[in-house]
Amino acid sequence: MVHPLANLVITGACGGLGRAMAQAALARGARVALVGLDRSVLDSLAAAAPGRCAMYMPDVSDGAAMQAMAADWMARFGVPDAVIANAGVAGGFDTAEASDLAVFKRMLEINLLGVAATFQPFVKPMRERGSGVLAGIASIAGRRGMPGNGAYCASKGGLIRYLQSLRAELRAAGITVCTVSPGYLRTQLTAGNKFAMPGLMAPEAAAEAILRALAEGREQLVLPRRVGWLSNLLGLLPDAWHDALLLRQPRKPRAGEAGATAIPGLGAAGAAPQPSSDKAAR
Rank of each mutant, 00 (worst) to 15 (best):
M1H: 14
M1W: 12
P4Y: 10
A6H: 12
N7V: 04
I10Q: 01
T11R: 06
G12N: 06
A24M: 07
A24K: 05
L26C: 04
G29C: 13
R31D: 00
V32I: 06
L37T: 08
L37N: 05
S40K: 12
L42A: 03
D43N: 12
L45D: 01
M55E: 07
D59G: 09
M66L: 15
A68K: 08
A71D: 15
G78F: 03
P80A: 03
A85Q: 00
F93L: 10
D94T: 08
T95N: 08
V103F: 04
E109V: 13
N111A: 06
V115D: 01
Q120R: 11
V123C: 01
V123W: 00
V123H: 01
M126F: 02
S131N: 11
G132M: 01
G132Y: 01
L134S: 00
A141E: 03
G157A: 06
G158D: 02
G158Q: 01
G158V: 02
R161H: 12
Q164I: 14
S165A: 15
A168C: 15
E169C: 03
V180K: 01
S181Y: 06
G183F: 02
G183C: 07
T187I: 09
T187W: 00
G192Y: 05
K194F: 13
F195A: 09
M197S: 09
M197D: 05
G199N: 10
A207E: 01
A209T: 11
Q220N: 12
L221F: 06
L221Y: 03
V222L: 08
R225T: 10
R226T: 14
V227S: 11
G228N: 07
G228Q: 05
N232V: 11
D239P: 09
D239I: 14
W241F: 14
W241N: 08
L245I: 15
L245P: 05
R248D: 10
Q249C: 11
P253H: 11
T261E: 07
T261P: 07
A262I: 15
A269W: 04
P273T: 14
P275C: 13
